[in-house]
Design a protein around this nucleic acid. Structure first.
Length: 257
DNA sequence: GCGACAG
DNA sequence: ATCTTGTCGC
C-alpha cells in the first residue's frame, strides 16, 4: 500500500475477495500483522461514516406487482456508501456510493469479505479520502482481533474505528446510565483481554460497541465516537451512511424492477 | 455435541 | 442485513 497511488488500478487491492471461508480466515491472520493499535492520526480535517445495503436474490423487493420475479433475481448486489464531513464542524462535504456484485455470504467473523469490496468501490469515487473512517461493525472486538474496521484500515493505511450495534464476542460489566459513560469489553477466553468498549451515546437507550479499527487507541476511539455522536444512539457518520445506503437501495430497486 | 454468532 | 404494519410510549 505504501506509495500506492490513490485511484490507481491496484488501489487497496491486497488480496482476492472471492475466497473460501478457510482462506478468508488465513488472510485475516496475515493482514493482522500490519495492524496498529496505538494512536497514529494526522490532524483530523475530515471524517466519514461507512455502511452497506444489499439486494438479495429472491427477495420480495425484486418481484413486480404481478408477483413475478424480475430478471435481476440472480443478481445479488452490495451497495457501499460513504458520507464525509469536515471535522470538527461536522458539516457534510461529500458522499459517494457504488453497487457491486455480492460474492460472499454472511458468516460471523467474516463480514469484511461481504462488505469491504462495496465500501472500497464507494471510497474510490471520493475526490479525497477522509482522515478517519467510522465503520458499521466491529474492529478489534473480533474472534481473531481483525474485524471489518481493522481490515479496511489496514488496506487503506488509514485510521478507522468500529461502531457496532451489537456484540460479536466478549462481555462487559454494568454500564452507567448517563450519556458518555462507557465500560470495557473483555474476552474471557483470552485472559480477559480488553478488546473494546460498550458506550452509552444517549441516556435511556441501548449502548453501542466501540472498538479500535486501525492506528487508533481504544481511549481515542471512544472519545472520537462520542465527539461525533449527536444525541442519537447511533453516531452521525455511521447513521447517515446507513440512511444513504437505504436511499440508494430504493433507487436501485426503482430503476431495475 | 450444544450454543453463540458484527451485518 | 432483509422482510413487514401497525402500534405503544415519551
Amino acid at each position: 500500500m505504501i506509495g500506492m497511488e490513490y485511484k490507481s488500478r491496484e488501489w487497496a487491492k491486497r488480496h482476492a475477495w472471492r475466497v473460501a471461508p478457510e482462506q478468508a480466515r488465513a488472510i485475516q491472520e496475515e493482514l493482522r500483522k500490519e495492524w496498529e493499535g496505538a494512536d497514529r492520526l494526522p490532524e483530523l480535517r475530515t471524517v466519514a461514516g461507512l455502511d452497506a445495503a444489499f439486494v438479495l436474490r429472491g427477495s420480495q423487493a425484486l418481484k413486480n406487482r404481478r408477483g413475478r420475479w424480475n430478471a435481476l433475481r440472480e443478481a445479488n448486489r452490495a451497495i457501499g456508501c460513504v458520507v464525509m464531513y469536515r471535522f470538527p464542524e461536522m458539516e457534510e462535504v461529500e458522499r459517494a456510493s457504488a453497487v457491486v456484485p455480492l460474492q460472499f455470504p454472511y458468516i460471523p467473523g467474516l463480514l469484511s469479505f461481504r462488505e469491504i469490496p462495496a465500501l472500497l468501490a464507494a471510497l474510490r469515487k471520493l475526490r479525497k479520502l477522509p482522515d478517519l473512517l467510522f465503520c458499521d461493525g466491529q474492529g478489534y472486538a473480533h474472534p481473531r482481533r481483525f474485524g471489518l474496521a481493522c481490515h479496511l484500515g489496514v488496506l487503506l493505511d488509514r485510521p478507522t474505528i468500529g461502531c457496532a450495534k451489537s456484540l460479536l464476542v466478549g462481555t462487559h460489566g454494568e454500564l452507567g446510565e448517563k450519556a458518555g459513560s462507557w465500560a470495557p469489553i473483555v474476552d474471557g477466553r483470552a485472559k480477559g483481554e480488553r478488546i473494546g468498549a460498550v458506550v452509552r451515546t444517549r441516556k435511556g437507550v441501548r449502548p453501542i460497541y466501540v472498538s479500535q479499527g486501525h492506528r487508533v487507541s481504544l481511549e481515542t476511539a471512544v472519545r472520537l465516537t462520542l465527539q461525533v455522536a449527536d444525541g442519537v444512539r447511533i453516531p452521525r457518520p455511521t447513521r447517515e451512511a446507513d440512511a444513504f445506503a437505504s436511499e440508494r437501495k430504493q433507487r436501485f430497486l426503482r430503476e431495475h424492477v
